[in-house]
Each structure stands twice: as C-alpha cells, then as structure tokens.
Simulated assay, not measured.
Amino acid sequence: MPSHSPDTDPSAIGHGRKIIHVDMDAFYASVEQRDDPALRGKPVAVGGSRARGVVAAASYEARAFGVRSAMPSVTALRRCSELVFVPPRFEVYREVSGQIRAIFARYTEWIEPLSLDEAYLDVTEDRAGLGSATAIANAIRAAILAETGLTASAGVSYNKFIAKLASDQNKPNGICIIPPSHGESFVAGLPVKRFHGVGPVTARKMEALGILTGQDLRDRPLEFLQRHFGSYADYLFGAARGIDHRPVRAHRIAKSVGAERTFENDLSDREALHAALDRVVDAAWTRIERSGAAGRTVTLKLRHSDFRTITRARSTGKPIMDRALFAAMGRELLDQQLPVAGGVRLLGLTLSGLHHREEDDTTPPIQPELPL
C-alpha cells in the first residue's frame, strides 16, 4: 500500500473524525404525503400554485418529470400537467424537525443543523456503544422512520465535505460510507457541480476552464485556482483531494438567509423588476422558513448592467416574522433605487440580524478507534 505524508493522508487531515450527514428525503413533500394519503404516489409540489409562485419542494414522483425546488410554478406545470400543488405548513415541518433533532441527540451532542431537514453529526465519541459510525447512522435512520414515518438518507465519512456528497449518493432512503482510503477516488469521479459551495455560476466558469470532475480540479495547481477563484481556491484545492478541516459546530449560527437571481436580459421596467423581486422573495422566504430564523434587517442587492453592485438595508425594531413585511421592505428598498439607467442584471434579498443560540466553537472529543 502506498504511503502518505501527513499533508496528503485524508485520515490524518480528518483528525480521526467520524461524520454523518443526515438528509431527509423530499422532506416537505414527504410530510404532506404522510399526512394526506390521497397524495401518496402522486407528483406533489409544496408551495406556489397553478398560476404563480415558486416550488419550495417536490416529491420524488414530481422530480421524475424534472420538477425541482426554486422552479417557477408555471414551468413545473409545463413539465408535469398532473402536478398537485399544496400550501406549505412550516409549523408542521418545524415540529417534525424537532422530533428528528431529538433523535440525533440520543447519539451525539455534536449536531450542526443546516436547515430543518439536514444536519451534520460528529459521532467520533460512540455515546450509544454501537461500535461504528455506520451502525449509528442506521440506528438514526431506523428511529426516524419508526417515529415520524419518514425516510432519511445518510452519508458516513471522515469529514463534512465527503459526508454531504455521500448522503446524496443513494437517495432516497439510502446510506453511503466513504472511508479515508476511498475519499480521494470518490471525489475524483464526481462532477464538480455537485460539490457543496459550487453554484451554477462557478460551475459554468469551471466548465469554461475545462474542469468538469473532481479529477479535473485535482489536476489544476493551486496557483491556477488562486488566479481564477481567489480566496475560494484553498477550499477547492483541498476538496479535490478529499480534504476538509472544518469541525462540526454545535449551535451553528447563520449570518443571513436569502436568495438572488441573475436575469438573462437586463430589466429596467418597474413592473418587471417588481415581478422579478417577488420571485426572489418567494425563494428567500422559503429558505428563511426552512432555517427557522428570525431577523431584523432586510438587505437588497442590486447589480447594474455594467456590473456595478450596490446594497441597501433597512432594519426594524422587532423580528420580521411574515413574508408580507419582508416583501414590502424589499419593494421599498428597490423603489428607492428606481429608475435605474442601463437596467438591472441581478436582484437579491436577504434577512440578517438573525436570532439563534450562541455558537459553541469547541470541537468534539477525538476517539479515532471508532470505525466508519
């Protein structure tokens, strides 16, 4: 077996951590199908309507037709004429999410929620005495199914980056285990557009540079990545080698939650800009509800046709708890910038000043003897 230096050995880089990424399967839509038997087996879209709005979540039956979250409802309906739209019930999703996190807490105190339906768990310390991270992941998935009637998929690995990739590998209701010895080869065969943090714009830039897979990314030297991706280069360089230093952080705080959209054609008409902002609001509010966050500051991001970008913010004395106020503040900020000479190519809207528990920066205990 070839030897590794401490700088390149994934198990050394992972510091012996055992990480699970748990991701609920089509969470919102699955809750709706669970609670309404008439929806089972049918293509379901949560959010939006047959006339307008944006899909917040889609069942696997709907995904088979190409329906995806953040897709305009009219587009989703064109792809699946039998699509059933149901209004979101975020209070129910939060309640179920609480049940799921209580299950996580039986096995570890190191829980980093990313949203209502997914979380990282550090199970390096085998609290339940099950003997392996895989056994813990399977016990968690079985408890979720028994207690909520919902399925979850899990990725088990030595760091967060690979665990998250792995959880998507065998969906729905699947598990994927990637040990340190297979991390680099696993990453090499994946398209870079699947990498956490690589959005559509970055993926297109990589494609233009001939970077389509993890192996392509690994073949580029750090200097090349720094020249093209700036401060993001170090993360990409490590990710291509299956390396991720980040610990699981309990009580993780998001600084802001929102959404933005880049337009194919620059917009200058007030009515068109308001319609575009409504779509941004739909996408942003879905993420805000999913995160369970409440904040006091709304920030508008506006990019002009010449790529000049401005941000404008407004704060309130109390947390913004409903979509209508969030949308109204966004429209007010937008109207203050109109008319816009030359047009607008991007709009974004975020909520910040979020209220969560204080972040605990302590990393979990290390017990490298627990196998994956």
Score class of each variant (00 low, 15 high):
Phe90Met: 15
Glu109Ile: 01
Ile100Gly: 02
Ser81Gln: 15
Thr124Ser: 15
Val123Thr: 09
Val96Cys: 01
Tyr107Trp: 03
Glu118Trp: 06
Ser81Val: 14
Tyr120Ala: 09
Ile103Tyr: 02
Gly131Ala: 11
Ser97Thr: 05
Arg94Ile: 00
Phe85Leu: 10
Glu125Tyr: 10
Thr108Ser: 11
Val123Arg: 09
Ser115Asp: 10
Glu112Tyr: 06
Gly129Asp: 10
Gly129Lys: 04
Ala128Glu: 11
Ala102Tyr: 06
Ile103Gln: 00
Leu83Trp: 14
Arg106Asp: 08
Arg94Lys: 13
Glu109Lys: 08
Ala102Asp: 15
Ser97Tyr: 06
Thr108Asp: 10
Leu121Trp: 05
Ala128Phe: 01
Gly129Arg: 01
Tyr107Gly: 07
Thr124Pro: 10
Gly131Met: 12
Trp110Met: 08
Gly98Met: 08
Gln99Trp: 09
Glu112Gln: 14
Arg94Gln: 15
Gly131Glu: 12
Gly98Arg: 14
Arg127Asp: 00
Tyr93Glu: 12
Ala102Val: 07
Ile103Val: 11
Ala119Ser: 12
Gly98Trp: 01
Trp110Pro: 00
Val96Asp: 04
Leu114Gly: 14
Pro87Ile: 00
Ala102His: 07
Ile111Gly: 04
Ala119Trp: 03
Thr124Arg: 09
Leu121Ile: 05
Ala102Thr: 10
Ser115Glu: 05
Glu109Pro: 04
Pro87Leu: 06
Val84Ala: 13
Thr108Arg: 03
Ala133Tyr: 06
Arg94Ala: 15
Leu83Ile: 13
Glu91Thr: 14
Arg106His: 04
Ile100Ala: 03
Leu114Phe: 12
Leu130Tyr: 07
Thr124Asn: 12
Gly129Pro: 09
Ala128Val: 02
Trp110Ala: 14
Arg127Gln: 09
Ile100Trp: 06
Asp122Cys: 04
Pro88Leu: 12
Gln99Gly: 01
Val123Gly: 03
Asp122Met: 01
Tyr107Asn: 01
Gly129Met: 08
Ser132Thr: 08
Ala105Val: 00
Tyr120Lys: 00
Val86Cys: 11
Leu114Thr: 01
Gly98Ser: 14
Pro113Asn: 09
Thr108Cys: 06
Tyr120Arg: 00
Asp117Pro: 02
Arg89Tyr: 11
Arg106Asn: 03
Pro88Cys: 08
Val86Met: 13
Ile100Ser: 04
Gly129Ser: 05
Leu114Met: 14
Ser81Glu: 15
Arg89Cys: 13
Ala102Leu: 07
Ile100Glu: 03
Glu125Leu: 10
Ala128Arg: 11
Arg94Glu: 13
Asp126Lys: 08
Ala105Gln: 10
Tyr93Asn: 12
Gly129Glu: 07
Arg106Ile: 00
Tyr93Met: 09
Ala133Leu: 10
Leu121Phe: 00
Glu82Lys: 15
Val96Trp: 02
Val92Thr: 14
Phe90Ile: 05
Arg106Cys: 08
Val96Asn: 02
Pro88Phe: 05
Ile111Pro: 03
Pro113Val: 02
Pro113Trp: 04
Glu95Leu: 12
Val84Ser: 13
Glu112Cys: 02
Tyr107Cys: 01
Ala133Phe: 04
Gly98Leu: 09
Glu109His: 09
Thr108Asn: 05
Tyr107Glu: 07
Tyr93Thr: 10
Ser132Arg: 02
Ile103Phe: 02
Ser97Arg: 06
Phe90Tyr: 15
Ile100His: 01
Glu82Ala: 15
Leu116Asp: 03
Ser97Gln: 05
Asp117Ala: 05
Asp126Met: 06
